[in-house]
């Protein structure tokens, strides 16, 4: 009950306290937290002994303050989301057991965030393997860090930056044996090995997102969240490597407005990369057919005269 009250009171304060439009206020209370939680080594005065103690910070609790100030939640005070009990030091042990908000706790049913379709994200996520194979402890924060979260696809980020950030969300666990074991007892498969059927795997990883192949892509979803069973992942090269490339409906839908219009099919991709089969140039196509046609015609005429004068 106390926890519920606590949650409600902080939720209400989050709604009331933050001014989302302005510059982030360098909240004094946040500075107090950052004093220790941005450092690998922190110091404090031990009230019992009177000594200054130097301790190593738990790496999971170290925050990048620059990333925080660039993130979408930069306007919040730490205690808007975390228990106010953290304001005292040493932090009370039970504070660690505080339940965490999920995205929907703040963003659900609010018209202000309607364009982000949080309910749809929740719906897709609930069907994804991350939800069906795990219990409720698999929350949004497994993949997204609220402390540094940026709305990559809604801003002026380059495709390569979107790819890197989104892929890092997957790789952080799928390439880290310890983090992987947080949610799975099975042996973590080696990503390069299981993807060895893809030529230039590292280039693919740099150019497209894991979710291009590993999610069900719906037009209604801005960023797909329904992670599929691995057996259902896209394995056909031509799904991307063809004129009707699905990349235009997934990764490159964020940049349609900046499309290059220089005679290439799916030209917007060329701003960043080149996808054989998907990028073709109309002019080159016509020119090559005409030149080839001319060569064949010239040969045909030559053959005609050779046989005529035989």
């Amino acid at each position: 009950m106390l926890l519920l009250l606590l949650l409600f009171s902080s939720y209400a304060s989050a709604q009331l306290l933050v001014e989302m439009e302005g510059e982030p206020a360098s909240l004094e209370s946040n500075q107090t937290c950052f004093e220790c939680h941005t450092k690998q080594i922190y110091t404090y005065e031990n009230d019992w002994t009177g000594n200054i103690e130097r301790k190593a910070m738990n790496p999971n609790f170290i925050l990048d303050s620059t990333a925080f100030h660039q993130g979408v939640h930069r306007h919040f005070a730490c205690t808007d989301c975390h228990s106010p009990e953290y304001e005292s030091f040493p932090h009370p042990g039970e504070a660690r057991l505080e339940p965490m908000y999920t995205c929907l706790d703040c963003h659900g049913g609010d018209d202000t965030y309607a364009q982000y379709h949080f309910e749809l994200i929740e719906e897709e996520f609930s069907k994804s393997v991350h939800a069906t194979r795990n219990d409720e402890s698999f929350s949004c924060w497994m993949c997204h860090d609220p402390h540094s979260y940026k709305a990559m696809t809604r801003s002026e980020f380059k495709i390569s930056e979107i790819v890197q950030t989104h892929n890092n969300a997957c790789i952080n666990c799928h390439n880290d044996p310890v983090k992987f074991q947080l949610v799975s007892d099975s042996i973590r498969p080696d990503l390069a090995k299981v993807h060895n059927f893809i030529p230039s795997y590292n280039l693919h990883l740099k150019s497209v997102r894991c979710i291009e192949c590993h999610t069900s892509q719906q037009d209604t979803m801005w960023v797909a969240h329904q992670i599929l069973e691995k057996e259902l992942a896209v394995k056909k090269c031509v799904d991307c490597h063809s004129s009707n490339t699905m990349l235009m409906a997934s990764l490159y839908k964020y940049q349609n407005l900046e499309a290059r219009q220089d005679g290439f099919l799916n030209a917007v991709i060329l701003n960043n990369s080149y996808v054989i089969g998907a990028n073709r140039n109309y002019i080159f196509n016509i020119l090559s057919i005409v030149l080839f046609g001319f060569a064949l015609l010239a040969i045909a005429i030559h053959v005609y005269f050779r046989f005529k004068n035989r």
Partner: peptide, 15 residues
């Protein structure tokens, strides 16, 4: 086959 890949009419399978 790669340059003009077409899922409906594959000359040679892409991979």
């Amino acid at each position: 086959s790669m340059q003009y890949s077409n899922p409906d009419l594959p000359l040679i399978r892409f991979d």
